[in-house]
Design a binder for these strands. Structure first.
Length: 478
RNA sequence: GGGCCAGUAGCUCAGGCGGUAGAGCAACGCCCUUUUAAGGCGUGGGUCGAAGGUUCGAUUCCUUCCUGGCUCACCA
């Protein structure tokens, strides 16, 4: 039989059959109803109206048990010929798994103790033309899970949970900051001078202005302009774009929280970051998530150079010359390459130290020449007032006392530019001018939200915590 | 970009050291009014990732390519 060849064709024909019977295959709405979760909480005998997707169907001649799923959960429904009538029951038998329906009926409890809706009437709400992934194994193919995320979150509860955790994380961060009197702002994503970090930007073009623009690599310089304007406590949660490698920890667009607080220095940000992360953990745990790490322990401050010395067994000091560092890198089997000293240090750090920083740790002691936007330490001009947060061997945050001296800032920009060569953009003179009007002393913090969600959910890949991660574009005939 | 692994039915997976493939779920038909991975009997469904090569013959062997995953390099 040709008709049975293709499930898709068959289901399309069912739409025509519905229309013949005068049943709309894609009606506009269902009307008042409650969620599946709410319905499941009702007592026996209560009449409920619910709507959702048909996820299973166990048909026994003249009756059928099925499960209906909406965003709040699943509930069993029991459709009996004697309750809905012969015609409606025949139509129900024609429904496919994946179709949407709305039902009205009475709550009862089955022999096996499952709360169920004894359906009195139902309406067809939308047709599904393609068969859903397998009910037991779900959808496993990684590529398909990312490309067709709607199927992944539909049939794989663990995927859905991780991505919902993300929403809780962001909300909790936002709420905490709002409670503390921070103002949430949105600054430009399209920028003509991409600044605030060192990374290669994405380039785009504005037709009316006839000029190149860049997708931001960080919002930092705009947020600090707000400090100049007297907005003393600001934060932004938003997307940054960096035109660099993709890995299990890097997506070209990722979400950052950046916070700035006037009249405080980087020590304030230690407290704030700790508070934010712990409250996020508590919020998730309250929502039933099991967090694999205890974030309440740790939060010790450790010196970069002491850590390097401890874990490599080689003495490191901030006063080491580039030659010294290269020699030590060589001994430690780290290719020094042609990079600047901070990159070599970073590489040694990644290889020997990072994995040991399991408990939340504030790493301090970063060289000021490689932290152009940070203030120098009053005690040691070589060192910046800066820390990075490491948890579970991953860098999740970066903070410093903000450089607000326009002359020093300008000099830092210029020397940084000189060191970059071909890749360099230009000095953001507009930003320097803003500083010249005066910026209060302030501290700033950036937290990578994707990575926090990874830590909180135990996700192995950043792609598990981003709904639609960047994949190579393909032309595929589905 | 380098290395390793993978791609077989809508989904989850077997298999084949060369003779064009199987299971479960899903689908189709019949039976079944408390099932829950419902059950029973029966049926259909595949350019075995793509293209070349070797061969009488390739899904299987070889080469190249595509896609993905992990990993290294670079970055957050």
């Amino acid at each position: 039989m040709d008709e049975t060849k293709d499930q898709y064709e068959l289901r399309k024909k069912k739409i025509a059959q519905l229309e013949e019977k005068g049943i709309e295959s894609y009606p506009a709405s269902f009307g008042p109803h409650i969620t599946v979760r709410e319905a499941a909480a009702k007592e026996e005998g209560v009449t409920v109206r619910i709507a959702g997707r048909l996820m299973s169907k166990r048909l026994m001649g003249k009756a059928s048990f099925s499960h209906i799923k909406d965003y709040s959960g699943r509930l069993q429904v029991y459709v009996r010929r004697d309750n809905v009538g012969e015609e409606a029951f025949a139509a129900f038998k024609e429904m496919d798994i994946g179709d949407f329906m709305g039902v009205e009926g009475e709550i009862f409890i089955t022999k096996t103790g499952e709360k169920t809706v004894l359906v009195k009437s139902y309406v067809f709400l939308a047709k599904s033309l393609r068969p859903l992934p397998e009910k037991w194994h779900g959808l496993k193919d990684t590529e398909t899970r990312y490309r067709k995320r709607y199927l992944d979150i539909l049939v794989n509860p663990q995927s859905s949970d991780i991505l919902k955790a993300r929403s809780i994380v962001i909300n909790e961060m936002r709420n905490r900051l709002l409670q503390k009197d921070f103002v949430e702002v949105e600054t430009p994503i399209l920028q003509d001078i991409p600044g605030g970090a060192s990374a290669r930007p994405f380039k785009t073009f504005h037709n009316t202005f006839g000029r190149d623009l860049y997708l931001r690599i960080a919002p930092e310089l705009y947020l600090k302009r707000l400090l100049v304007g007297g907005w003393d406590r600001v934060f932004e949660i938003g997307r940054n774009f960096r035109n660099e490698g993709i890995s299990t920890r890097h997506n070209p667009e990722f979400t950052m929280l950046e916070v700035y607080c006037a009249y405080t220095d980087y020590r304030y940000m230690m407290e704030l970051s700790r508070e934010i992360i712990i409250s996020v953990q508590e919020k998730l745990e309250a929502g039933g998530f099991k967090i694999p790490i205890d974030f309440s322990d740790g939060w010790e401050e450790k010196d970069l150079w002491a850590l390097l010395t401890e874990y490599t067994g080689t003495g490191f000091s901030p006063t080491d010359s580039f030659e010294d560092i290269k020699k030590k890198a060589d001994k430690l089997d780290v290719p020094p390459g042609k990079d600047s000293p901070d990159k070599v240090i970073d590489r040694i750090f990644s290889k020997y130290v990072e994995e040991n920083l399991v408990k939340p740790t504030f790493v301090t002691g970063y060289l000021s020449e490689h932290s152009p936007l940070a203030k120098r330490s009053a005690r040691d001009g070589n060192i910046s007032e800066r820390f990075e947060i490491f948890i579970c061997g991953q860098e999740v945050g970066n903070a410093y006392s903000e450089q607000n001296d326009p002359a020093v800032q300008k000099a830092m920009f210029e020397s940084q530019l000189a060191g970059q060569g071909a890749d360099a953009s230009e000095v953001d003179t507009d930003y320097i001018e803003a500083l010249e009007y005066g910026m209060p002393p302030a501290s700033g913090l950036g937290i990578g939200i994707d990575r926090i969600v990874m830590l909180m959910t135990g996700a192995e890949s950043i792609r598990e915590v981003i709904l639609f991660p960047m994949l190579k574009p393909v032309q595929k005939d589905y």
